[in-house]
């Protein structure tokens, strides 16, 4: 009896996260998938449902339309938007890593008493709305903004730099917004690192720099991977930052999605874009995880 009850309790506990995923991920995903396989209609909702119940499932299955996906391959705009998104996300992730690693390293090596303060400082920006912080960057980066004024004031440049409405502004926006997601996992893995390993490496003749490359970096790979994924994945689908800071030629899939949904009201194509984006992100992650598992063994 006792055993049965604890067994049931365990089942319930493990079921919770699955239930969560089912309700908030799988169900919406299936709905979007369904829409992506239907045809556009000027109606409310602006699509024709493919099947209503199980009884005409087979019959309706014939009607499933892959046209939307074909359409995505035919119009170069979508492919360009995908590639451009991946490029922008990749470059931003790399810059975030380059900026975040020294930060996390310095935090992990800071005196014990100082660490909670530094940790707080990293999290602090979250207390202000994301949107407001991105808007603030417009004020900083625009031609007559703070940055250009400062550079001209220092005599470094004579003409204002055109940063806003370029990819650079998007990089700056993404790096700034997602830096904490990079720093926190990096900090966690660097802080755990046994300093005696570094001493052992130096004892065996490694210069401090060599010890860093051969010991610190490899042992912080889990942090690098976690941080990079946490930055890369949302950056690929980012909409607000390219919309507010990017130029008209900054092509990102999040924006394309928005245009399809709300401007063209083409829900099926927009859904197809979303599904492809998901596949594009999930497949590399799964491959990467498999590689990690193999390396760990």
């Amino acid at each position: 009896m006792q055993g049965l009850r604890s067994f049931l309790a365990r089942q319930v506990v493990t079921a919770v996260p699955y239930l969560w995923l089912l309700v908030f991920f799988l169900a919406p995903f299936l709905i979007v998938l369904k829409i992506s396989l239907s045809e556009t209609a000027i109606a409310m909702p602006p699509y024709t449902p493919v099947f209503e119940g199980l009884k005409d499932l087979l019959e309706k299955a014939k009607q499933l339309s892959f046209d939307n996906y074909l359409w995505l391959t035919e119009d170069a705009l979508y492919i360009k938007a995908y590639l451009s998104s991946l490029r922008i996300a990749l470059v931003s992730t790399l810059i975030t890593l380059i900026v975040g690693y020294p930060l996390a390293y310095a935090m992990a090596r800071a005196p014990d008493g100082l660490r909670p303060v530094l940790l707080m400082a990293v999290i602090l920006p979250f207390w202000t709305s994301f949107l407001i912080r991105v808007y603030a960057w417009i004020g900083i980066l625009k031609p007559e903004g703070l940055l250009n004024q400062a550079l001209i004031g220092l005599g470094l440049i004579s003409e204002p730099l055109q940063i806003i409405n370029t990819d650079w502004a998007v990089y700056i926006g993404i790096v700034y917004s997602y830096l904490p997601f990079m720093v926190l996992p990096l900090y966690a893995s660097l802080e755990r690192l046994d300093l005696r390993l570094i001493e052992a490496a130096m004892d065996l003749g490694a210069t401090p720099l060599k010890a860093f490359w051969r010991i610190t970096v490899p042992l912080s790979v889990p942090g690098i991977v976690a941080g990079s994924l946490l930055v890369f994945i949302p950056a690929v689908g980012e909409f607000v930052i390219p919309d507010l800071l990017g130029g008209s030629d900054t092509l990102m899939i999040g924006r394309t999605l928005w245009v399809e949904f709300f401007y063209n009201r083409d829900w099926p194509v927009a859904s197809a874009v979303a599904i492809l984006l998901l596949i594009l992100l999930v497949v590399p992650i799964v491959i990467f995880q498999k590689m990690q598992e193999k390396a760990a063994r």
Binding site: L197, A200, D203
Partner: peptide
């Protein structure tokens, strides 16, 4: 001079 550390400090990776 080389040292053998108290808890070995072997490189885990």
């Amino acid at each position: 001079v080389n040292m053998m550390f108290q808890s070995y400090a072997l490189f885990p990776h």
